[in-house]
Write a protein that binds this DNA or RNA. Structure first.
Length: 284
DNA sequence: AACGACACCTGGAGGC
DNA sequence: TGCCTCCAGGTGTCGT
């Protein structure tokens, strides 16, 4: 589920609510695979205090009071982090429960179990950060820098936007919508984007992600914040999941395609493909 | 190096 | 009602 805005919403919620809370005990359910394995994972977290909540790309990162350790969560497609009272009704698909010394607990729920909960050392956290490229909000990522990042790459721009090692934060929804805002065809050859288009793309990524955060994230089915509330960005999708519907700018019908195995949407009028495109787009 | 296929899992939606 | 197929916001691996 979550892309940068959704993870940011959750991280902000945690920052507001659980800094200073102390973990009393940890329960791992359904043999969910934590790292390290559940027994050690639980032991290591016992008695530890949460000192900070930050986001690395799409990874929620909690700094802990002990041994310079960090508790990290990747929510993948269906992960949720919910702050509940211990007496509150169970949430479906809860995989790990972090019980605090007060009346609250943090529940990590993950229907499809694509996500993870990992305890990392400072060194491992450094390695994690190195895996990711800059986010569209990283200071120093300007048009020129982005242009040079993309210049060496081949292949359709949309695929590269989903590659977290190049640009971190976008997923399928925001990548589709950012390209529509920038009026760039999803299949445009990334290495040959003009400086002008690169500038538009950077601005579009910043715009759509900022808007997503402002609207509390996109909720199609699964995403909720730490209180269980859905976001509303799905009401503002530009092209994502809108095949056959009129473009908001020009009323041309949005076209749905598949690119790199992911559903892809664009307006054939606003997002023209120029001659250097890669030719890998398959119509539905 | 780069690309596609597939794998990890479960459930919801829609067709028949 | 029920069975079947397809689809899903992410990412990692493996083979060509």
């Amino acid at each position: 589920m979550p892309e940068l805005p959704e993870v940011e919403i959750i991280t902000r919620g945690l920052k507001k609510e659980i800094i200073g809370k102390k973990i009393e005990s940890v329960v791992v359910l359904n043999n969910y695979r934590t790292s390290p394995p559940s027994k050690v994972f639980s032991e290591q977290l016992k008695g530890v205090e949460i000192t900070e909540a930050t986001r690395i790309a799409k990874v929620v990162t909690l700094a802990l009071s002990k041994n310079q350790q960090f508790l990290t969560f990747h929510l993948a497609m269906t992960g949720r982090l919910l702050l509940r009272k211990k007496t509150d009704a169970t949430d479906a698909y809860t995989r790990v429960i972090f019980k605090f010394t007060d009346e609250y607990e943090l529940r990590f729920s993950d229907l499809r179990m694509f996500g993870y909960a990992k305890l990392l050392s400072l060194e491992e956290l450094g390695e994690l950060k190195e895996k990711y490229g800059p986010s569209p909000f990283t200071k120093g990522l300007d048009t020129k820098k982005l242009h040079s990042l993309l210049a060496s790459k081949k292949g359709p721009i949309k695929k590269l936007l989903l590659d977290q090692s190049i640009i971190a934060g976008l997923g399928n929804i925001y990548a589709n919508d950012a390209l529509w805002i920038a009026k760039i065809h999803p299949e445009q050859n990334a290495g040959k984007l003009t400086l002008e288009n690169t500038e538009k793309l950077l601005a579009a990524m910043q715009e759509i992600l900022t808007e997503g955060i402002k609207n509390g994230g996109s909720t199609i089915k699964d995403f909720v914040d730490i209180y269980g509330n859905p976001g509303s960005q799905q009401k503002h999708f530009r092209v994502y999941a809108k095949a056959g519907q009129p473009c908001m700018r020009c009323s041309t019908l949005i076209v749905g395609t598949e690119l790199g195995g992911r559903s892809t949407f664009h307006c054939p009028t606003c997002q023209k493909l120029s001659a250097d495109a890669t030719g890998a787009l398959k119509l539905w």
